[in-house]
Design a protein around this nucleic acid. Structure first.
Length: 535
RNA sequence: GGGCCUCUAGCUCAGUUGGUUAGAGCAACGGACUUUUAAUCCGUGGGUCGUCGGUUCGAUCCCGACGGGGCCUACCA
């Protein structure tokens, strides 16, 4: 596929050189009276490479013809109204009415019907609004009508000036006094009557955006969700910052990083897997309520819920804890649903609903696991008992950490049964190196994961701010790394130094924006990201 | 990483149990049409059947490798 595309591209390139380099002489058969009619598109197209895809050769030929008598890509056009403005001004015209108002509009041709002396075209603006243009012999004259018929293709950007009327069929239209090419297209739009395949849509998102309303909607929804999140943070007096994406030590999460190299510093750099350690430095510095929405990069598998680069939200609140930050998270999501959809019960395309309203339950990881499995599981439970339990339900775990077993077992026994948004609270200590020990329970930390529709949506902590314990936890991680766990964190001395200058007690949270969009729309991650990475 | 499936025209897809010339709709080209909405009518062109190799008298079809894509599984705060 790739090589085929490349070949086509090279062909076009070759054709262009061929055209521009030896200055082209006047065409044979060029008539002084009516050049556009006497030279057929086909004979023009035959001058191009024979194996160039036919429709592209034809359109390149049309482009040349247009350029000979004017502009195919004019720099500006006398546009007086958007399509939406014209439609808003005349919402209910009777059939066959002339308004007397002249406008100039532009749009992409999405429908084209050329008949003998009257041509119709549906022009579409970027926002998807459409209006009909009518090109008639008595308004534009024979020459311009013939040019319209031979030069204009589906997909072209066209400017039309004329009176706003309604057609005999009652459709709001511009009856053109004049028309002009706004941008000639070289490639044909795909067949608009069939659904495009998923792969085609992802690889050609710009076409998807042209032809599919929902694709445009998702882009708008995403923008509105971002705006709503920032509004909520603003209301709660949080400050937005941006922290390094290129880091000398990757930390703040356990994931395999992308590596790169700085020539200037002659040093290995990592694309960040999380902004956490820098945002905490900001809190140390006195930015008490801080958040960042930006990209994280993880060099791991990609599937319906994972993308190698993904938008991440992290927020830290001084003098908050994992309860206050859970409350904040709930408000962020509920406000987003309310702001964007006007309801906290969002509806998906397949008819299912996602009820985000009310106060979300908080369940304990150990208690819910004990209940679901019928085996009492606590931080003191012998790891051999956990191994036996895992074996009894065919879960294979090969990991030295007690907490890893607890989490895996919890996912097996409880996760799938969660329907409403739920905070799962109080995680094992040994898998949460950046989290404060629970204020009253032994062996667990003040951490929650938020699950919505079975996906992990967000996570929150009472942040570990004791620099001595933090150092111990890091050393444990480094020991794990030495033992071959590639995801274990590296010791970040600069971060520890910052903590030693005193970080106030804080709550912190992280949430995947793409997954939030999934929860709000029911779409897969490759639909919520406009241009997802494809090979 | 493991398993299964898939790749045919610009797009969506048929089809060939291995056989002369690979089809449809839309799109394109030529023609007719002053109210079309996937118009209609007449005519025409367009394909290295993902790539390379093997089996065969003969391969788009069978086999293998490679490449693209998908699904399941594993990994993934």
């Amino acid at each position: 596929m790739k090589t085929k595309r490349l070949c086509q591209f090279q062909k076009i390139f070759t054709v262009r050189l061929d055209y521009w380099w030896p200055p082209r002489l006047a065409k044979p058969g060029l008539s002084t009276t009516c050049p556009f009619i006497t030279r057929s598109i086909m004979s023009e197209a035959e001058e191009f490479e024979a194996d160039l895809p036919e429709q592209i050769a034809v359109r390149l030929a049309k482009r040349e013809q247009i350029l000979e008598s004017g502009e195919a890509y004019p720099v500006s056009l006398p546009i007086s109204h958007t399509i939406a403005e014209v439609k808003a001004k005349y919402p209910n015209l009777e059939a066959d009415v002339a308004t007397g108002e002249s406008v100039g509009i532009a749009g992409r041709i999405m429908f084209l019907r050329n008949t003998g002396k009257l041509c119709f075209a549906a022009l579409q603006a970027g926002d998807g609004e459409r209006i009909q243009a009518m090109i008639s012999l008595d308004k534009v004259g024979e020459e311009r009508l013939d040019q319209w018929k031979s030069w204009v293709d589906l997909g072209d950007h066209i400017f039309v000036a004329g009176e706003v009327i309604s057609s005999k069929r009652g459709e709001l239209s511009i009856l053109a006094d004049n028309w002009q090419m706004a941008a000639k297209t070289i490639r044909p739009l795909p067949n608009l009557h069939n659904e495009l395949g998923e792969e085609f849509r992802v690889r050609h998102r710009y076409i998807d955006l042209i032809v599919r309303d929902r694709a445009r909607e998702v882009v708008q929804i995403r923008a509105q969700v971002m705006k709503s999140l920032r509004n909520t943070f603003d209301q709660e007096r949080f400050t937005e910052v941006e922290t390094p994406m290129l880091q000398t030590i990757h930390g703040g999460a356990s994931a395999r990083p992308f590596k790169t190299h700085s020539n200037a510093f002659d040093t290995e750099l990592f694309l960040r897997i999380a902004p956490e350690l820098f945002l905490k430095r900001a809190v140390v510095g006195g930015i008490d309520r801080v958040f960042e929405i930006n990209r994280n990069f993880r060099n791991e598998g990609a599937d319906r819920t994972h993308s190698p680069e993904f938008a991440m939200l992290e927020a830290y609140q001084a003098y908050g804890d994992y309860n206050s930050i859970a409350d904040l998270t709930q408000r962020l999501i509920q406000n987003a649903a309310q702001d964007v959809f006007g309801t906290q019960v969002v509806k998906f395309e397949d008819g299912t609903e996602n009820d985000l309203s009310g106060n979300w339950p908080r369940i304990s990881m150990f208690e819910s696991l004990s209940e679901a499995s019928g085996v009492l599981v606590t931080p003191e439970t012998d790891i051999e008992i956990l191994k036996k339990l895992a074996k009894s339900v065919d879960i294979e775990i090969d990991h030295p950490l007690h907490g890893k077993y607890v989490e895996e077992l919890w996912e097996h026994f409880v996760k799938a049964k969660l329907e409403k948004p739920t905070f799962v609270i109080d995680f094992p200590v040994d898998t949460s190196p950046l989290t404060r020990n629970h204020r009253s329970k032994e062996g667990v930390v003040e951490k929650w994961d938020l699950y919505i529709r079975g996906y992990e949506q967000a996570t929150g902590y009472s942040e570990l701010v004791d620099p001595v314990i933090q150092r111990e936890r890091f050393i444990e991680q480094v020991t794990l790394a030495a033992a071959g766990d590639p995801e274990a964190m590296k010791l970040d001395e600069e971060f520890l130094k910052a903590l030693e200058f005193g970080m106030p007690p804080s709550g912190g949270m992280g949430m995947g924006i793409d997954r939030l969009l999934m929860s709000l729309t029911g779409l897969g991650i490759r639909e919520t990201i406009m241009f997802p990475l494809v090979k």
